[in-house]
Design a protein around this nucleic acid. Structure first.
Length: 487
RNA sequence: GCCCCCAUCGUCUAGAGGCCUAGGACAUCAGCCUUUCAAGCUGAAGAUCAGGGGUCCGAAUCCCCUUGGGGGCACCA
């Protein structure tokens, strides 16, 4: 920690806009952010948009939006690599001039058939270095035919590269398992390897925290740093987050993009808490931890090495915890957009704010995500309750006594002056005894009548919120439904 | 096929030689609370620490092998 703070910590999150950020991407962003904040360093956002073919139009927007949603604010950027093409070309040419790179004129077709043959022969697919040792004469000859070459790195043929990863420790790769990778594509854009190394150096990145899938390309990067006579940054590869099938997260894993979690009604704080625990832990017991505590305690030493399958059940549980921690007003503020989206007809007319907040406060404790709220609360907002009349007889009551019970209850309720939970309970509980009904059965019957469902918030509070008029109307409706049960 | 990484309950994890007859959390099951649901509380079940060899007085922890899983091997990132 001391050595880390000696030189200023500068980290970056460098997504490519070829898709929407998923849990793994965002976890990487989070760890970078936490690392920067913990050390009082700088968190930089860099968009690696060097693949024009795969670029997704609104991906950058979504990336920025997701980071903002989670409160992962950046100090510099977003830098766009597509606007720095000259810089990469400059260094590609420098490598060319200094003999660390060469122009390759091989056609994609040739490369493809070569690869196929190699795979068929069960050989590692590697570029065969066809153009590596072309004579000047050969070179000018091909160039005359108008082929635009790519620039390839001249990987040393022998020896090995070793680097120290802050999480995985010392890692060594033999050079003969590497090939001459492309630095500059024929369209003039750099590859990831070139752009990434150039930018990390130019932007004075001190620590590269990225997913473990990059571990095996790190030797290439180290080689590049050396060829350019630059000091490489510290590397820390983060364990992968896998889908339920243990494979790398991708589109086919359902909820892939982080923004889907937003629309499903997860709270950013819950998301941050959950993601932080995917690969990092404070101790042997802490599960709920605030952003402040996280930045205070975050350290690379407590990042694990094993890939994790993310556990949606646990996320849901945690989100429920965060939902319940909200004040009633905050809960309403968070839930309203979901209400509007799911129940546009019902919320179209201006609703009494007091009614809404009373209703939602009964829902708050029962929701695990905000997207569940409209469904859980819908009976508060619909005039015409729709339910199967059979529900009224759930308490294995016969139709007649059910009808009697509802009739008497409605009668008595009509005369109530103060409509609140306490009064309602004071009236209805003794009534159950008078009717010689178990409270469970009687209250269950009223619950269905009043909410249209067997599972709902506590009856008296619910009735108190619904109000006298609504309750009485619904009891009448129940009576009607019961009457249709006779024969 | 080659290279790299990893390996503790179903899942997330604690564990850096004796504190481990392996701890916590989610999920599961049971009980309590209770008008239902949810929440809460209590408890149960669940890991021969992948397997096999070493090292050591002593290993989940160190070493080796095997197996399994993942990742990489593009003019994609």
């Amino acid at each position: 920690m001391q050595s880390e703070s000696e030189t200023s910590v500068r980290v970056r999150f460098a997504p490519s806009p070829t898709g929407y950020p998923h849990l793994g991407n965002i976890r990487t962003a989070l760890f970078n952010w936490l690392f920067a904040r913990h050390h009082g360093g700088t968190f930089i956002l860099r968009i690696e948009d060097t693949d024009i073919a795969r670029k997704v139009e609104d991906a950058v927007e979504v990336i920025l939006g997701s980071l903002r949603w989670l409160g992962l604010d950046w100090d510099e950027g977003p830098y766009l690599q597509s606007q720095r093409l000259l810089t990469y070309r400059e260094f590609a040419h420098k490598l060319l001039d200094e003999g660390h790179a060469y122009s390759c004129y091989c056609s994609p077709e040739r490369l493809e058939t070569m690869r196929q043959e190699q795979v068929q022969r069960k050989q590692p697919p590697k570029y065969d270095r066809h153009c590596r040792d072309l004579t000047q004469h050969e070179r000018t000859k091909v160039e005359a035919s108008g082929i635009t070459p790519v620039v390839r790195f001249k990987t040393p043929l022998e020896g090995e590269t070793t680097f120290y990863d802050l999480i995985y420790g010392q890692v060594t790769f033999k050079h003969d398992t590497l090939d001459d990778f492309v630095l500059l594509k024929s369209d003039g854009y750099p590859t990831y390897h070139l752009a990434n190394v150039v930018d990390d150096h130019l932007m004075a990145i001190s620590h590269v925290l990225r997913a473990e899938e990059w571990l095996s390309s790190t030797p290439r990067h180290v080689l590049l740093y050396r060829a350019l006579d630059w000091q490489p940054p510290h590397f820390a590869h983060l364990p992968m987050i896998l889908g339920p099938d243990r494979a790398k997260l991708s589109k086919r894993h359902g909820a892939t993009s982080i923004q889907e979690y937003q629309t499903q009604g997860y709270l950013p704080e819950a998301m941050v808490n959950f993601l932080a625990l995917l690969g990092w832990s404070l101790d042997d017991r802490t599960e709920l931890i605030s952003r402040e505590e996280l930045t205070k305690h975050f350290s690379l030493e407590r990042v694990g090495k094993t890939a994790a399958i993310f556990n949606k059940d646990k996320l849901e549980w945690m989100n429920g915890v965060y939902l319940r921690k909200l004040s009633a007003a905050e809960f309403v503020r968070h839930a309203m957009p979901f209400m509007d989206r799911a129940l546009p007809k019902l919320t179209a007319c201006p609703l009494d704010q007091n009614y809404v907040s009373q209703a939602l406060s009964l829902i708050q404790e029962r929701a695990r995500t905000l997207a569940e709220v409209p469904e859980l609360a819908s009976f508060f907002f619909s005039d015409e309750l729709q339910y199967d009349r059979g529900l009224l007889l759930k308490g294995r009551m016969d139709v007649k006594s059910a009808a009697t019970a509802v009739t008497i209850a409605a009668q008595k309720l009509r005369d109530i002056a103060t409509w609140d939970a306490t009064t309602l309970e004071g009236m209805l509980r003794p009534l159950a005894a008078e009717l010689d009904l178990k409270t469970g059965n009687f209250f269950g019957l009223l619950r269905v009548a009043v909410t249209g469902r067997t599972a709902a918030p506590p009856l008296f509070e619910t009735m108190a919120v619904l109000g006298k008029g609504r309750c009485l109307r619904r009891l009448d409706l129940a009576l009607e439904l019961l009457s249709t049960c006779f024969n």
